[in-house]
């Protein structure tokens, strides 16, 4: 895993590791205090132009499913988490991947699971 940094405009630097895309993304950094709903957050168009930081520390623990998608693609510019769950446990998950980020998609189906955008994600080391 490659090192990644989150740099704020006031000069604060947070170090972590990238999971998902390895690239560069910028946006308004915002936090969300919900305890669940990372799939809805990732696909909510209201997060366009934003890097989202969920305050709930564990992300990915119930995988990604076909019902909870809120638009046709990932909308956040970036996602910053404390800990990535590598073994999601739920019957609804269609993507028991090691990452909450879906890896395939079939756009023909209205319930398709969106591809990651070029966004970069980071978690602390």
């Amino acid at each position: 895993m490659r090192k990644a940094i989150l740099v704020l405009e006031d000069g604060t630097v947070y170090e972590g590791y990238s999971f998902g895309g390895e690239s560069t993304a910028w946006g308004e950094v915002v936090f969300n205090t919900s305890m669940t709903g990372y799939q809805e957050m990732l696909t909510d168009p209201s997060y366009a132009g934003q890097i989202v930081v969920p305050t709930y520390p564990l992300i990915g623990n119930y995988g990604i499913n076909e019902q909870d998608v809120e638009s046709r693609r990932i909308q956040v510019k970036g996602f910053v988490i404390r800990e990535e769950c590598r073994g999601p446990a739920t019957g609804r998950a269609r993507r028991p991947s090691t990452s909450p980020w879906p890896r395939t998609a079939s756009p023909a189906s209205p319930g398709w699971i969106p591809e990651p955008s070029p966004a970069t994600c980071a978690r602390p080391g």
Partner: peptide, 30 residues
């Protein structure tokens, strides 16, 4: 507050780039 998330740049490069970016509230994302 604007932030830049990167696995490619140094923090100095990122900070430099942040200074040149448009304000979030000036962009029509709709």
């Amino acid at each position: 507050m604007l932030g830049l998330l990167t696995s490619e740049m140094t923090s100095d490069e990122a900070l430099h780039q942040l200074k040149d970016l448009p304000r979030y509230e000036a962009i029509d994302y709709v």
